[in-house]
Amino acid sequence: MAARNPAAPSNLLTLAEVLAELRVSRSTFDTWRTLGTAPKCIKLPEGRLFVGPRGGIMTDRTYLGMWHKARKKALNPYEAASPLAETPYALRHAAVSTWLGAGVPAAQVAEWAGHSVAVLLRVYAKCVAGQEDDAKRRIAEATRPKDG
């Protein structure tokens, strides 16, 4: 992690720290900003982006409040009343699970999710279960002699 700017207030979080705390990607945070539901951002010298309500530390309550506002704007009333994407992590977990279940190679999913392949498979191994028949079909197709 980069050294903190000594001129910056110590009670603010860098964007990287906020993303890690929220367990969301930069693209998710950027979507929140586009929707107008992201926490207040303060750009400090050297182009660093710090986040915090009224200049304070980002709390769980603050980011979940923003998340729920974004959900209400993005989802229809039926979806918003459901557990769909109830937390940022649930949405991320659903995306990674869906990619793996759809047969996207683990190395690609790991890259998109910011995981190593080992961590990805340890956490999401159950999502690749049941793909044996499809894998055998692809192997058979790849090894079948080509017609002339």
Rank of each mutant, 00 (worst) to 15 (best):
K72C: 06
W32P: 00
L19E: 01
I139V: 14
E132D: 14
V24M: 14
I139K: 05
R23G: 08
Q108K: 14
V117W: 05
R137K: 10
P145M: 03
A95Q: 11
A38R: 00
K126L: 10
V24T: 13
L19P: 03
A113G: 11
T14Y: 11
R144I: 01
P39G: 04
D147S: 11
G103P: 08
S25N: 02
E132W: 05
E17V: 05
C41G: 02
R137G: 04
K43E: 13
L75G: 03
I139G: 01
P6E: 08
A142W: 06
G52F: 03
R48H: 06
A7T: 09
S25M: 00
R23C: 10
A16N: 14
H93D: 15
H115M: 15
G47Q: 05
Y124T: 11
G130S: 06
L121D: 09
G148R: 02
T98I: 03
K126N: 12
V128N: 01
T34A: 09
V128L: 13
E79W: 00
V18N: 00
A135Q: 10
D133V: 11
K146Y: 06
I42V: 12
V119W: 13
R23A: 13
G103Q: 06
A113L: 11
G55C: 05
P53Q: 08
A113I: 10
R26M: 04
A142N: 09
R122K: 12
E17G: 06
A2K: 12
R61T: 02
V18C: 15
T31P: 00
T87R: 10
A16D: 15
K146C: 05
L75E: 01
L100K: 03
K43R: 13
A81H: 07
Y78K: 10
L121W: 04
V128E: 10
